[in-house]
Computed example of a mutant assay.
Amino acid sequence: MNLTDTPVLILTIVLFVASLALAMAQWGGRGILRGRVRTAEQRRGPLRALSYLGTVLLCQVTAVAMVFVVVNNENLIYDSWGDLLGTSNHVRAVPVPPKDGGLSGDQAAASGSPVPKVVQSFHAPDSDAVPRSVKQTDLKGRLSGVDGEVLVWTPPQYDDPAHKDRTFPVVELLAGYPGASSTWFGTMDVIAQLEPLMKSGQVAPFILVSPRVTLLGGTDTGCADIPGKVNAETWLSRDVPQMILDNFRADRTADRWALAGYSAGAHCATRLALAHPDRYRAAISMSGYNDPIGEPSSLTAKDPKLRETSNPLYLLTHAATPPNVALYQTGKKGDGLEDATALQRAAKSPTTVTPVETTGAHLTSTWKPLVGPSFKWLTGIIPAR
């Protein structure tokens, strides 16, 4: 049972109400609520005092648990008990990834190779917070050694017989840290916001893909390949896209793929787009950062070399040629705006950077209203066809 399942919320409410009822019964039975005078012996009884204290603590614990579940369900910070306790490990192995030939290179290699397609079965989302129109699969990363869930939503045109031979552009949605793969479809309400815009033609009919990004318990991977620890970059930029290409009518060229993320996921979106312009055409960043130390628990922030080379500004300024990547960077002063303007100043054609100043706190309530405007911008980069 996931943390975000409705029965968990109901259970915490029932336990809280039961603890209050126990306290009322205990205090009332001893005459506290009816004003009866207790004897000196009753007042001094240590066991009785401990029972009263225990009941008060029980009320507090159940109240805190209920509030935590309500807040977690609202923001989808933790999707599983393992993520909450920091015990989840989705790294099966850490092989050395094969040479990266880009999205088109992978397709060329696959066409002349006996390697079988990554054919997946899909089921309803594990999280009750995710609309039933979303499909979930549990993917074993062939190249990365990472195992994790991937949530996929197809646009309204996808199942229309008039578009049966059409392929569709793709956006990978990256959650922050801590954050669940369900957050974009739950708290961020991306389907309810974008589906009407796709039907009206204001937003291109993107396939939306939200892979697991928390791979090592209570640690942020920085979306990087770290020898001996995790191949997060290969998981997100190679295994997940290959699965989408093998199971959906997705466009097979890099200029039809993009990323979007918030907070640590925003850092990853920008970083992956700049590191792999042969895989992605654009990235949307909501309150992201350049220096990996923006997330102190990030593995890339703890290694001086990785901290330098994982910085999107470093990637941009050290690229052999300016990447053909468009970046949409939102943030407020002190929370992403300065990083966005630094990228804008360093960008050279054909790289483009669009900074957008916001004023809200570092919360999903700030990022959720940005979904519509950012995807309209993205449609200007990757239009419908």
Rank of each mutant, 00 (worst) to 15 (best):
K229F: 04
R252V: 01
A109G: 05
K332N: 12
V130A: 08
F375W: 13
P95V: 04
I382E: 00
Y280V: 02
A110R: 13
T219I: 13
I32N: 10
P156C: 11
P241K: 04
P373Q: 07
G360R: 12
D220G: 08
F168G: 03
R36V: 14
L194C: 11
S237H: 02
S365W: 09
L194E: 11
Q136T: 08
G141Y: 04
L57R: 04
A264P: 05
S374Q: 04
A192G: 11
F206G: 05
T354H: 12
G86Q: 10
D106I: 02
Q60K: 03
L315C: 07
F185I: 05
T221Y: 06
N73Q: 14
F168H: 02
G265I: 05
W184F: 14
G148Y: 11
D339I: 06
R281Q: 13
G86I: 07
I207C: 05
L33G: 11
S133W: 05
T6N: 08
Q107P: 01
R212K: 15
H362K: 05
G29H: 12
Q120Y: 01
A319K: 12
I10E: 09
L299G: 09
R249Q: 08
K117R: 15
K99D: 15
L84Q: 12
R36N: 10
V325Y: 01
T300I: 13
R92G: 04
I382M: 01
L216Y: 07
V70K: 08
A301R: 08
A18F: 06
A21E: 00
L174W: 02
S111P: 01
D339W: 07
V115W: 13
D160Q: 12
T351Q: 12
A129V: 06
A266R: 09
A129T: 12
F185E: 06
V67Y: 14
L84R: 14
